[in-house]
């Protein structure tokens, strides 16, 4: 296989993901409505309850909506990562995984291409959300919209890789409700998405430590700082570290010499 063929393969996988996203209008709309509901309803409700003091990267007092917007962007990516990775292995859709795996390209490359395709979709979704959020006075500096792109790619890859790992190792996650209950909500709530960590630290130290090791916290912070033209090296390193770990685990999980595919196909 030549480099040109590798790029053709990657292009085909990204194209398919984009077409699926455009064609499944339900998925498109719900992916957009979910964070907007949080922004418009939840944040409005808590607007007067929670005051947010001045913490970096913000330079003034900010309304609660502004605080949770980056976390909602990360939530879009979390949902997307889970959906694109896990949808492959759900009952009827197991087939699309097989189609991918019988390609003559190396398996690590196919998994990475699949991951990049999911990230491409999630980045577009994140920008659509940010565009709508602008009308709710979530107005980061114009350069922030550009600076956030690499952050979105990195966090999208990490969360997508987590989805791949879960899809390969955890057999019980057979439906999306299970993923919502045991992955998405716990990760979202034990992070800095809804409240600053100093507040969590005041309330409960154990919870604070959980938030600190939660990869979703660091994805959120990476996006938050980037959106305001700031680079947060700690968050970037942690997200990168988790990405490498999840990628390695995914490649192991999908290795033909090991568990996943054998268990899946045997269960059919």
């Amino acid at each position: 296989m030549t480099a040109a063929q590798y790029s053709l393969c990657l292009g085909g996988i990204v194209r398919r993901e984009a077409l699926r996203w455009l064609n499944q209008r339900g998925r498109f709309v719900s992916a957009l409505v979910r964070p907007l509901v949080w922004l418009v309803i939840f944040a409005a409700g808590f607007h007067f309850v929670l005051g947010v003091s001045i913490i970096p990267p913000y330079e003034t007092y900010i309304p609660y909506e502004v605080y949770i917007a980056p976390g909602l962007v990360a939530m879009i990516q979390l949902f997307n990562g889970m959906q694109s990775s896990l949808s492959m292995v759900y009952d009827r859709e197991m087939g699309s995984m097989k189609t991918l795996m019988v390609s003559p390209f190396p398996r690590w490359f196919l998994l990475l291409a699949k991951l990049l395709a999911g990230v491409a979709v999630s980045v577009v979704q994140a920008y659509i959300f940010l565009a709508i959020a602008w009308f709710w006075d979530i107005t980061p500096p114009p350069t922030g919209y550009l600076a956030v792109l690499p952050a979105l790619v990195l966090s999208g890859l990490m969360l997508g890789a987590l989805g791949l790992v879960l899809s390969s190792f955890i057999k019980q996650l057979e439906n999306f409700a299970g993923v919502m209950n045991f992955v998405i909500f716990p990760m979202f709530f034990t992070s800095s998405a809804l409240y600053p960590l100093w507040r969590v630290k005041d309330a409960n130290l154990t919870l604070y430590y959980i938030c600190e090791i939660n990869p979703f916290t660091h994805a959120t912070e990476l996006i938050r700082f980037a959106l305001y033209d700031r680079f947060e090296p700690m968050a970037a390193l942690v997200v990168l570290g988790y990405l490498l770990v999840f990628l390695a685990l995914a490649v192991i999980g999908y290795d033909p010499g090991r568990g996943l595919m054998a268990r899946r196909v045997a269960a059919e």
Binding site: Q5, Y6, L8, C9, G12, I13, R15, P104, F105, L110
Partner: peptide, 9 residues
């Protein structure tokens, strides 16, 4: 076409 791309076409 998707399948073709998986074979580098």
């Amino acid at each position: 076409f998707y399948h073709a791309s998986l074979h580098g076409l």
